[in-house]
Design a protein around this nucleic acid. Structure first.
Lengths: 129, 129
DNA sequence: TAATTGGTTAGCCATGAAGCTAACTATAGA
DNA sequence: TCTATAGTTAGCTTCATGGCTAACCAATTA
């Protein structure tokens, strides 16, 4: 029943909210209690708690309670998975651009060769730019 | 009224859906028509169109119609913004780890120095901080 | 011109997300 | 022990999202 979202789904969904991104950014600078995290936001505590829970189920954040204060920190491989996805895509994208460039170069070479083969043509040639 | 979401919000939200990620991945390999994009999915066309629209308003995808076929391609700086965000966070995170390591090293040095200074002591001292 | 193809618009529905208040639990401090 | 602090749970509202069908253009093709 538990809707089985992929890790990546959850991470991106978590980061789609500015409040949650702010929390992550805050935690990049070091761990913090729920209260400290809530402080900069004009938002009821339970609302903020929900954000923290979202971050936690996505794996971006971990927390542990000691006494009455819960301390939050970034999950160990928090951002790695998502960042990896980008790198993958960029790699494919760039490979494609390379191939495209190669293709354009090939076209150009062929065109030049063709032009060399028939050096004189009665009407205007457009090709020689 | 147009809810003013930040670019980053929209990009991450767009990428939070597996269908949309698949579309982006497909477009990394080259442009495609709406029909070609829809093909691998078991989903009604209008539903898929909505996904494309989401991708388009996020800036991840661009499209243009010629005749009756609409061709989609990745937006020029599509993934850059989001990837940049990750790099930023990682930079802060790593700086913090460096600082933390430096701190631990400092503690260690101080401890050694202190140990050197009082080679023998009967009971535990609390006061020396 | 008629039929097909490729996409689009409109409108419906179910679910989930983001916020709130109010009331509650449990620890820490006076 | 009393009180204040820190967080939690429950339950409500509102709006956004993701999916559908049905009907509708507008280019192509026969």
């Amino acid at each position: 029943m538990a809707n089985q979202l992929s890790q990546l789904d959850q991470v991106f969904a978590a980061l789609a909210d500015p409040t949650r991104r702010a929390i992550v950014m805050r935690l990049c600078a070091g761990e913090a209690s729920v209260g400290e995290l809530a402080d900069p936001f004009d938002m009821a505590l339970p609302s903020l708690m929900k954000h923290i829970q979202v971050l936690e189920t996505s794996g971006l954040v971990q927390s542990e309670k000691s006494g009455r204060v819960r301390t939050c920190r970034l999950g160990p491989d928090a951002l790695v998975g998502a960042e990896y996805w980008f790198q993958q895509q960029r790699a494919i994208w760039e490979a494609r651009l390379d191939r495209f460039e190669a293709y354009v170069m090939k076209l150009k070479r062929e065109k030049e060769r063709a032009a060399a083969k028939r050096p004189s043509r009665t009407t205007k040639r457009k090709g020689s730019e």
